[in-house]
């Protein structure tokens, strides 16, 4: 991050990239868990959130890719919507497989490609894939994901990528890059 480095030289001190977002997230979680606005609790929350956010943003680059703008917020909400629809579909499918008299599945491990670059975006994509219709991430290798598919419909890498990762990548790409 050359710009942050320049700022550091000019002003002496600058917050690490992604610090504000992570701090806000941690502090909100703290408020939810305590559900109280008493001064000691607020003060403890501020100190704990600052310490954790400082450690995680200076020691790892994972949080640097999260950008907080209205546009990313909109795409994150859209992604959440897509995710819940897929989650319901996944469970109805599961219901059909498991309660049917004869289990009719064609399992297999297929390789798919992903376009996401940032580690946290890939984490979100892998987690989403695991919770959606009949797919479970087995391994990551460069740009490829190995996915265990409960009902293999195609072994072609491009078609499979579109079917498994397609619904999420559009929104996740805008949020995490």
């Amino acid at each position: 991050m050359p710009s942050a480095e320049e700022k550091r030289q000019r002003t002496g001190l600058v917050l690490p990239t992604g610090f504000a977002g992570l701090w806000l997230l941690l502090f909100c979680l703290w408020l939810i868990f305590n559900s109280s606005l008493a001064l000691p609790i607020l003060a403890t929350g501020v100190v704990a959130a600052t310490a954790l956010a400082w450690i995680f943003t200076t020691r790892s680059t994972v949080w640097h890719y999260v950008r907080l703008t209205p546009r990313t917020l909109y795409h994150f909400l859209a992604y959440t919507g897509v995710f819940f629809v897929e989650l319901v579909k996944a469970n109805v499918n599961m219901l059909r497989y498991v309660y049917s008299p004869r289990i009719d599945i064609r399992p297999g491990i297929v390789k798919i490609r992903m376009r996401l670059r940032s580690p946290i975006g890939r984490l979100a994509l892998a987690n989403s894939i695991a919770l959606t219709p009949g797919s479970l991430v087995m391994d990551v290798e460069d740009d490829a994901l190995y996915v265990h598919w409960l009902d293999v419909r195609t072994t072609d890498i491009d078609e499979a990528s579109e079917m498994i990762a397609g619904p999420f990548e559009k929104h996740l790409g805008r949020v995490f890059g």
Binding site: L87, N91, M94, V98, Y99, P107
Partner: peptide
């Protein structure tokens, strides 16, 4: 219950993880 029955009925460890992770979470 679906997750539990799925773990019993599905054929191997990978397909069983499908049942456990999805239905169990929901």
């Amino acid at each position: 219950l679906l997750a539990a029955i799925g773990i019993v009925r599905l054929p191997d460890v990978y397909t069983r993880m499908h049942a456990a992770s999805k239905a169990g979470t929901v």
